[in-house]
């Protein structure tokens, strides 16, 4: 089943601002990273998926439903965590999440139970009875996640879930999102402007820029066969490059580094052998995993 599918989706706000332009993308269930700079159209896309905004043109399907006509059915099966502050300070997390669970249609006692469960899953225990106003940013983000989870959705839409968190908090939040996507059996769409974050946890990556699709693919397809070894020698870099080329190794020069594609473990031996034969002072030999960012970086000149 296709989780989310859009077809030539376009959204133009009054005043001629184009938020989404001819976006066609289809993703399978799993953890999906939606990346793009601020203003790329991520939040607009989420609002269209929730049926809160009507697209100017094009078609969209979420969980096989059309959010422009069946918005209530879509929203019953989707949990949404907004980007900005969304918690009334004088309610306790337990009360707020229980109330929102009831608004999602859960019976009263079920709402209370599931609110406790959801808060426990995101790591809030006794403090859930205290007013939210006294919570740290990290705890507030967890409450926002818990309220999106309380009605057991099939899809979570998380808008910048790591916003405002310190590095440890980011890691914890990402681990939690990963757990929800893998152990809970709930598909997750994570929005972020930080590619390095989402690429760590998602199976599928959708990159948009200026409302247009840059690329959408499985993360494995994006990162496979691009592991490279970085070799740094303090002198004789040309000699080494020539020698490695003679050994049929694809070599690229990158400043003071030589980048050699890693085929198998034998590649290490070939490089070390070449360095030893030329008697060069070796500074560094390490494996480098291509970050997805580099894939987009090389595409950007053609885009701009």
């Amino acid at each position: 089943m296709t989780l989310i599918a859009t077809e030539s989706l376009t959204k133009t706000y009054g005043g001629g601002v184009t938020a989404l332009a001819d976006l066609t993308v289809a993703v399978e269930p799993g953890i999906i990273g939606l990346v793009g700079a601020n203003g790329a159209g991520k939040s607009t896309l989420i609002k269209i998926l929730l049926g809160l905004l009507a697209p100017t043109s094009g078609r969209v399907r979420v969980l096989g439903l059309d959010p422009t006509t069946d918005s209530a059915q879509v929203r019953a099966r989707v949990g949404y965590m907004p980007e900005h502050d969304a918690l009334p300070p004088d309610l306790s997390a337990a009360e707020l999440v229980t109330h929102l669970g009831r608004v999602s249609g859960l019976p009263r006692t079920v709402a209370r139970e599931r609110a406790s469960e959801a808060l426990r899953h995101v790591g809030l225990y006794e403090e859930r009875y205290r007013p939210v106003g006294g919570y740290s940013t990290g705890m507030k983000q967890r409450v926002k996640l818990a309220q999106a989870l309380v009605h057991d959705p099939d899809l979570l839409l998380l808008d910048e879930p790591t916003n405002g968190l310190d590095p440890a908090g980011r890691d914890a939040m990402l681990a939690l999102v990963h757990r929800i996507g893998t152990e809970f059996g709930i598909s997750v769409l994570v929005c972020s402007h930080l590619l390095g974050e989402v690429e760590r946890i998602c199976d599928t990556l959708v990159a948009i820029d200026g409302g247009r699709l840059l690329r959408a693919d499985h993360i494995s397809a994006m990162t496979s066969a691009i592991d490279v070894l970085a070799v740094e020698v303090s002198e004789g870099i040309e000699d080494l490059a020539a020698r490695l080329a003679a050994l049929d190794l694809p070599v690229r020069r990158d400043g003071r580094l030589l980048l050699v594609e890693l085929v198998d473990d034998a590649t290490y031996d070939l490089i070390l052998g070449a360095v030893a034969e030329l008697d060069l002072p070796l500074h560094r030999l390490d494996q480098r995993r291509h970050r997805v960012a580099e894939l987009f970086a090389t595409r950007e000149p053609s885009h701009a």
Binding site: Q73, A76, G79, Y80, L100, V103
Partner: peptide
């Protein structure tokens, strides 16, 4: 937004 992202 937490209300309006729900079915009501």
């Amino acid at each position: 937004p937490l209300y309006f992202s729900r079915p009501l």
